[in-house]
Amino acid sequence: MLNVKFNLVLSFFALFLIASTLKCASASTGDSHPYYRTCLNNCINIDCNQNPSQNGMLPWYMRLLFWDCGSNCRYECQIDTEHYFAMNGVPSQQYFGKWYFIRVCGIQEFFSVLFSIFNLIVHYDGYQRMRRCIPASHHSKSLCLKWALIGMNAWIWSSVFHIRDTPITEKLDYFSAGAFVLFGLYNSLVLMFKLDLKQGGKPITFLLATLFSLAFLSHISYLSFYTFDYDYNMKANLSIGLLSNFAWFYYSWKHRNSGLHWTKWPALSVTALMLSASLELFDFSPIANLIDAHSLWHLATVPITYYIYSFVIKSSVYDTIAGSPKLKSMYGRD
């Protein structure tokens, strides 16, 4: 059965890579403005087409991040257009669906990258703590470790996407985040309801894993081969995330009279996650053209994630020592 699950993962990953190479585009007020269009056409025709060596004149770190003359023209013309808007009393506008950010050593969204790396670190720390602290005999240790690995993968691609926004890095970021959210729901259901310990548990978890894999393959296929619908993608991830939140709320409610203070952490954590996600609703032009609501959301998830892993460790160890009332009493007071 493990081999079948592994083959499902390989099949998904192959389609995942293929889908990530397909392009998508969106237009915004800034890139549609005549001033920007004129600037971009002049830059490409004069600086790029008439001077093919222009790519080699870019700094090495920009070439390392796959900047070329054309993409650099798009960035430079955003600067010129923003200056034009400011001189005419027009607020900052979006370009190709995103705000203008000051580039730092070739990095497009410096603080989103930095805060994504913070999240990567806290997931790595969670992985190491679970590997050390959760007893090997615990029924869901392997699943929890996989969850942390998928989380690390999501934040790696978030960092890459914010370093350099391309059609490929965008899809790898969005699809990796979707995989983490969906696997988070699967992990929550198995962990909270101990599905793998119930009678017929392995067939149940296998069926659930298969259904989730097929749902995710359908999701990325729709976005890749039909249309890259940002609104649909957001709603799909939000819906799955809310289902996970309900599972965590239910756990805290079910154990409300247990006398164990850490059983409140799931409800508190998902409440904090929902409050932090509300930052995405208050979209604003970046402060100093560097920090926006999206980057602040990434920052807010760092301490929350730490406590989520702490809860998983606490509950897993507590489950393992369930046969010893004395140890349960001692551990419950930690």
Rank of each mutant, 00 (worst) to 15 (best):
F13G: 06
E82K: 14
K98Y: 01
M1H: 12
C77R: 01
I46S: 14
R74S: 01
L17Q: 05
T166R: 11
L260M: 06
I107N: 01
Y331N: 03
F180T: 10
C24H: 02
Y186W: 03
F225M: 07
H255L: 00
D31H: 09
K328R: 14
P167A: 07
Y318G: 03
K264A: 15
D334Q: 09
T305S: 13
K171M: 13
V312S: 08
Y230P: 01
F115S: 09
I240W: 13
V302R: 03
L217W: 09
D31I: 05
P52E: 00
M234T: 14
Y124G: 15
S239C: 07
T227L: 13
Q94A: 09
N153L: 03
N55Q: 07
A136S: 08
K264H: 06
G200V: 13
M62F: 05
I121P: 05
T166F: 01
W262L: 11
S278C: 03
F96L: 00
F284L: 05
K23N: 02
L17I: 08
K198Q: 14
L299W: 09
I220E: 08
F110E: 04
V113L: 09
P52L: 09
I291G: 08
T305Y: 02
I121V: 14
R132S: 10
S158A: 14
D68L: 09
W99C: 02
I240N: 10
T205I: 13
E109M: 14
F118H: 13
A179N: 01
A267M: 10
Y331P: 03
S71I: 13
V113I: 02
